[in-house]
């Protein structure tokens, strides 16, 4: 109950921030140079054609009018119509989110597990060879350009070794996967489509690996640093000095105290991963949200840009909210009321 009330209050606090984001993107997109109508009509269109197109998308209205229309649409769940494709933005968006979330969530989960295990392992060997190796590896991971790493993995996995699929598409079309959520792995599992599941997994392998490698580094560094702090703490020394040992020491006195600060960083890394997926989707021709938003941005497709910016902001704040709740659950010192 307390958690629910806390969530509700935080969500209400978020409204002004989101409204700010809405206003800002709406204005920014219109103030800056570039014209979506020109880009769809091409250079040969006449002034009349342009005016007609403008009227079709409501761009002939005064800006405040456009804004009110947009806001009204938002409230009813209508995100407008894409200028490029002419399809409703909400519909396009729905198909695009699944594949991206699938990628990010799997990679982040993988990275969190690896970071926790390796970070604690490394901290317990602080200053020794194993620890130094892990730290250097994390630094390299931190320095890798994800788009290049993706290409190198394609080069090795597909071009040289040949056991990864070509970097195009997310599932073998022959498997007849029916679309539910857009996340192919989930859809295959839900429909009990075995071959599609295997195929989706196969296609996910390299992009997930790419993303996981670049996001594991900051998580690993953070886990190692907090584990070191806990190991050096008087509380841990006291547990050791009183003869506690083995799993009890690890689980009761090291693990939870170490993970306390991870949620906030994981939320930041989630944002970083969203940024990285734009590049990774490009490399693997992954028809996800990143690709869609990027195209919208390049063509000045106002409704698409506005919808994607709003969605990212919304995602980001919700993820931070979740992080706060997890933090409160892990750390008894944090009060959520």
């Amino acid at each position: 109950m307390r958690v629910l009330r806390f969530l509700l209050r935080r969500l209400l606090q978020l409204l002004p921030v989101l409204l700010g984001v809405v206003v800002l993107t709406f204005l920014l997109v219109r103030v800056l140079p570039g014209d979506p109508i020109r880009t769809i009509l091409g250079p040969n269109a006449t002034a009349e054609d342009a005016a007609a197109a403008r009227a079709r998308y409501g761009l002939d209205q005064p800006v405040w009018r456009q804004f009110l229309d947009y806001l009204g649409g938002l409230v009813t769940g209508d995100l407008g119509t894409s200028i490029q494709s002419g399809a409703p933005v909400a519909g396009e968006l729905a198909v695009r989110i699944g594949p991206t979330l699938e990628l990010v969530v799997i990679a982040l989960a993988l990275a969190l597990v690896v970071a926790t295990a390796l970070g604690i392992w490394s901290a317990r060997r602080a200053g020794r060879f194993g620890d130094h190796t892990v730290r250097i590896a994390a630094l390299v991971g931190n320095s890798l350009p994800e788009f290049w790493l993706g290409l190198v993995l394609v080069l090795l996995g597909y071009s040289v070794l040949g056991w990864a699929p070509a970097p195009s598409g997310r599932v073998d079309p022959d498997t007849d996967l029916s679309l539910l959520t857009g996340a192919d792995l989930l859809d295959a599992a839900l429909t009990g489509n075995g071959p599609a599941f295997v195929s989706a997994l196969h296609h996910l392998m390299l992009p997930v690996l790419t993303l996981a490698i670049v996001i594991v580094a900051p998580l690993l560094r953070s886990v190692r640093a907090s584990a070191l702090e806990v190991l050096a703490s008087e509380a841990y020394a006291a547990a050791e000095a009183h003869g506690l040992r083995g799993r009890l020491l690890l689980r009761g006195y090291l693990l939870r105290a170490t993970l306390v600060r991870l949620p906030a960083l994981a939320a930041l890394v989630f944002g970083f991963a969203i940024g990285s997926t734009v590049l990774i989707e490009y490399v693997f021709s992954w028809q996800g949200f990143g690709q869609w938003a990027l195209r919208g941005l390049l063509y000045r497709d106002y409704p698409v840009v506005q919808a994607s910016v709003l969605l990212i902001a919304l995602f980001y704040v919700v993820v931070f909210l979740i992080a706060d709740v997890v933090h409160a659950a892990l750390d008894p010192r944090v009060r959520i009321s």
């Binding site: 700010g20 944002g271 990285s276 990027l294």
Partner: peptide, 22 residues
């Protein structure tokens, strides 16, 4: 508050948006 709005977006996304617009 300005910093809050900036930081409501992942850095790369922000750079992408601004670069695309400018």
């Amino acid at each position: 508050r300005v910093v809050d709005v900036f930081q409501a977006f992942p850095t790369f996304i922000l750079a992408l948006a601004v670069a695309a617009l400018f």
